[in-house]
C-alpha cells in the first residue's frame, strides 16, 4: 500500500467524511487549532526571546524553560490532535498539496531543533543559566525556532490556497 493509498483510505473513513461534510465542525476544529498554536508558539517564543537576551534577562534560563514546558506540551497536544483531525478530513487532498508537504517538513525541523538543543548546548546550561544573553549556539537555536514556527503558521494558512 503506497502512502497515497493510505491517505485515500483515511480520507474515506466515516470520521473523515463526517468532519468534511459538516458545515460547522471543520471550521470549529480549525479555530481550536489556531488557538492551540498561540499557546505553543507563544511559550516557545518566550524561551527563545530569553535565550536571545531580549526579555527576563535577570531570570534563570532553566527556570523559565522548565516552568513553561508543561504549557508548551499542552498546546502541542491540542495542536497535534486538532491538526490530525483536519488532515484526516482532507487526507487525499493534503497528500498532493505542496504547501502541506512543506509544512510537514518545517514541523519536523521545528521538532528536531529542541531535541538537538537539549542534547548539546543545553547540557551546559548550569554555566550560562544566569547570563543575560545565552551562548551563540543557543541563540542560533532560538532564531531557528522563531523562524520555523513563523514558517509553520504561514504555511498552515497557505494550505487553503493550493
Amino acid at each position: 500500500m503506497t502512502l497515497f493509498q493510505v491517505c485515500q483510505w483515511l480520507n474515506d473513513t466515516r470520521l473523515a467524511t463526517s468532519i468534511r461534510e459538516s458545515d460547522a465542525v471543520f471550521p470549529a476544529i480549525e479555530g481550536i487549532h489556531v488557538l492551540a498554536i498561540t499557546l505553543l508558539a507563544g511559550t516557545v517564543a518566550i524561551v527563545d526571546l530569553r535565550l536571545l537576551g531580549l526579555i527576563l534577562k535577570r531570570e534563570r534560563v532553566s527556570l523559565i524553560a522548565g516552568r513553561l514546558l508543561p504549557l508548551t506540551w499542552a498546546g502541542f497536544a491540542v495542536m497535534m490532535t486538532s491538526g490530525a483531525l483536519l488532515f484526516l478530513a482532507e487526507a487525499a487532498k493534503s497528500y498532493a498539496n505542496p504547501v502541506f508537504r512543506l509544512k510537514m517538513l518545517l514541523l519536523l525541523a521545528a521538532g528536531l531543533n529542541p531535541l538537538i538543543f537539549h542534547r548539546t548546548i543545553y547540557r551546559s546550561v548550569g554555566e550560562w543559566d544566569h547570563a543575560p544573553v545565552a551562548p551563540w549556539r543557543a541563540r542560533v537555536t532560538a532564531l531557528l525556532s522563531l523562524s520555523l514556527w513563523s514558517g509553520i503558521i504561514v504555511a498552515g494558512r497557505a494550505i487553503a490556497y493550493y
Partner: peptide, 9 residues
C-alpha cells in the same frame, strides 16, 4: 500568534 502568545503567557 504573537498577540495571543503574549496575552496567554
Amino acid at each position: 500568534a504573537a498577540l495571543g502568545g503574549t496575552v496567554l503567557v
